[in-house]
Nucleic acid binder design. Structure first.
Lengths: 208, 208
DNA sequence: TTTCACAAATGCAGACTTGCAGTTCCGCAA
DNA sequence: TTGCGGAACTGCAAGTCTGCATTTGTGAAA
């Protein structure tokens, strides 16, 4: 028997309203333009009041893209082993967490919207930052349990080391997200990181 | 005869209004709390209309901190030599540019405000992002003129290389800005970067 | 000196966002 | 089945922010 057998009526209705709002926001934005898709119109279209809209989404942009708070699956964390390709592992973890913030949306629509309104991408980036913070905390706890990292570096603690490590691992992710070739429809996939991880290694070698 | 001998009356009045608004915003926020210092009150106190307030500042927070658009001095750029400690040089350039976004404010007041309202610091970080974008473009042009970097790396162009390099150089800056010991009053100074640059090098050595 | 172009300021209207208080209705336990 | 506590919804009011049309006053040219 799985946990998600029968969500209560309350939860079901909540999910329905979320979807209705997201759906309304995306399609209205597409058909009449983002600036003419007012919150009031979106809420009306979903059958709730404007005020309720903001109980579901912090901002209109979030509703259009279907953005949610990112979540870190503990399973993924337990699979991290600090010995080999740590940057690669953390980068992929970042991507996995970041993906949880993206609700499912019709691919075609998503492409059109993000192409037409660049600040939607910026909004998405803010969720990326949240994901980074989440991962940062988690990685710190992993490193604390590993003898070769627990000590930290000279003049810095293990937390500082973890924080900087996550920043380094964030580079390939941010690089991909800001690349011209980035396809917001597919989103970012762990394997997409390989080229930018290679570039990072190349630059580091060149610098030293 | 310097260029700034006599700014026109227009420019002088503009600067005066800017200062008056910033002054009013900071002191009102301090004495009655940020949320009770409304834009209308700030504008009144500076002797202009609410609408005019937004001709000078994008948001109330910017007025309180006296934030401006960051600027890159071409002189600094011309001093970059891509051969030695490139990351360090770009990091310091980032700091220099970021500092141009911070208008002069009374130190005591600044400390109190940023301590009381953490989202002011977040707002400041957004200007940091702009500075990074500015530097990124500039560094790309510098690297393009250097034979050992102009080619880029395999599979990537020189612009990509520059972009990632600036991201790497941004790490020590972001690290310092998010450190517990960061003092928003003094702001960030180029020499503060040395320890975090060392930490970055240490971690990179450990990873390879 | 007069005139002209333009930057700055303003009022107004409308949209976004949040806090507060009151109401409705689901879920649970007696 | 009933009743209760709390979650969700709602309207309202205040504040933030932007676009547009209009006015005012400065700086410069004629």
């Amino acid at each position: 028997m799985t946990k998600i057998a029968t969500p209560s009526l309350r939860e079901r209705r909540k999910a329905e309203t979320w979807t209705a709002l997201h759906e309304a926001a995306a399609s209205l934005a597409l058909e009449r333009g983002l600036e003419h898709a007012t919150v009031e119109a979106i809420a009306d279209s979903a059958g709730v009041s404007s005020r309720t809209f903001f109980n579901y989404f912090r901002a209109k942009e979030d509703a259009v893209l279907g953005l949610q708070e990112p979540v870190l699956d503990p399973q993924l964390l337990s699979r991290i082993s600090p010995r080999v390709d740590l940057v690669g592992q953390v980068s992929r973890l970042l991507v996995a967490v970041a993906r949880t913030a993206l609700g499912s949306t019709d691919a075609r629509r998503r492409r059109q919207l993000m192409a037409a309104y660049p600040h939607l991408a910026q909004r998405q980036m803010e969720y990326m930052v949240k994901a980074e913070a989440l991962v940062c905390e988690a990685v710190a706890s992993v490193l604390a349990g590993d003898p070769s990292w627990a000590a930290g570096a000279e003049g810095f603690g293990a937390d500082d080391t973890a924080r900087m490590l996550v920043m380094i691992a964030g580079i390939p992710v941010r690089f991909n997200l800001t690349s011209a070739g980035y396809d917001p429809v597919r989103g970012l996939r762990p394997e997409d990181l390989d080229p930018s991880l290679a570039l990072l290694r190349q630059i580091q070698r060149k610098l030293s």
